[in-house]
């Protein structure tokens, strides 16, 4: 059963009661939460995901709710519990859905240390993967959101998972996180995109999540072969420029943007070096998304 097969009422009721088992790619999350904002977000943005009342095994047991103690009476807040333990400080109540998203990122990255994980978006075309690593603010999420509305498949907007055994890219399609001006830019660029309720005044400014475009959730078990590593940089009114990047520099960029490079030791080095070996590496500066779409289309055509 998919989330879209549930009525909002049933979903919210089940989440507030015994919880639901949400299938996110290779992970099953048991989610309990009585906060309408979260139920609405899940109902709208996770529509294509499998969701059940029962499962024998859950990878993550997640609950969102008000903190215990005095605080709940004078300031409305929300805490994210992982297996009954809160890894983060509470956030304002209106950020509950964003906190669910961030908490899920934490669950996945903290418990997938056997893979090489890079901070960055990853999209696919014709079986080939384009990795867009970069720190927050580099514009990778915006670029990723644009690409997946123009025929590229979303593997992830935040987390590039490279399997160290076969160097394939593991899809983890989830709602795409958009910040501040990106929200309007994408709404304008892709009017058909479904964007959830924005959470204002978060640490990252205003944050809203975009529903993964149709198809990518269903194809979450189809791995991609890494073909490109592109370091995007948004520069106001700049023309689109794609510059080749020396492999050694590309390796250092991958290392700098990795979540767990140091965890993997020489296995991480070998994986990263092989990954870079097999990819065309570029820096890419741009200001217009239409230009960027053209450049990426040429990249994809060149690989055929």
């Amino acid at each position: 059963m998919k989330v879209s097969d549930w009525s909002y009422r049933d979903l919210a009721g089940a989440m507030a009661g015994d919880g639901v088992f949400l299938h996110l790619g290779p992970f099953v999350t048991h989610l309990r939460c009585a906060i309408p904002l979260v139920a609405e977000g899940v109902h709208a943005l996770y529509a294509d995901y499998r969701c059940e009342r029962q499962a024998a095994f859950a990878d993550f047991r997640v609950r969102l709710g008000p903190p215990r103690g005095v605080r709940r009476w004078y300031r409305s807040q929300v805490l994210f519990y992982f297996d009954d333990w809160p890894p983060f400080k509470p956030l304002p109540y209106n950020q509950a859905f964003a906190m669910f998203e961030w908490g899920m990122n934490w669950c996945i990255t903290s418990h997938s240390q056997q893979h090489l994980m890079l901070h960055g978006a990853v999209v696919e075309k014709n079986g080939w993967g384009a990795m867009l690593p970069g720190p927050p603010g580099s514009g990778k999420s915006t670029l990723c959101a644009a690409l997946v509305n123009r025929g590229w498949r979303l593997l992830s907007d935040e987390l590039t998972v490279v399997r160290t055994d076969d160097l394939l890219l593991q899809p983890l399609p989830r709602p795409v996180s958009l910040k501040n001006r990106s929200i309007e830019i994408i709404a304008e660029f892709a009017p058909e995109a479904k964007i959830g309720t924005p959470a204002r005044d978060t640490d990252k400014g205003t944050v809203a999540h975009m529903k993964p475009p149709p198809g990518c959730v269903e194809q979450a078990d189809q791995l991609a072969t890494p073909a490109w590593l592109v370091l995007p940089k948004y520069i106001g009114s700049a023309p689109p420029v794609l510059t080749p990047l020396a492999k050694g520099d590309a390796l250092m960029q991958a290392v700098d943007n990795a979540f767990n490079y140091s965890v993997l030791g020489v296995r991480g080095f070998d994986a990263a070096a092989q990954l870079i070996d097999g990819c065309d590496c570029y820096r890419f500066s741009y200001s217009s998304l239409d230009d960027a779409m053209r450049v990426f289309a040429e990249l994809a055509d060149g690989s055929q």
Binding site: F57, D59, H111, S112, Q113, G265
Partner: peptide, 20 residues
Amino acid sequence: PEPARKHLDSARALAEQNER
């Protein structure tokens, strides 16, 4: 079982890092 295996793999990677 398969679902449990990935959690053990992840924990093992952390333990190996610890050893190094």
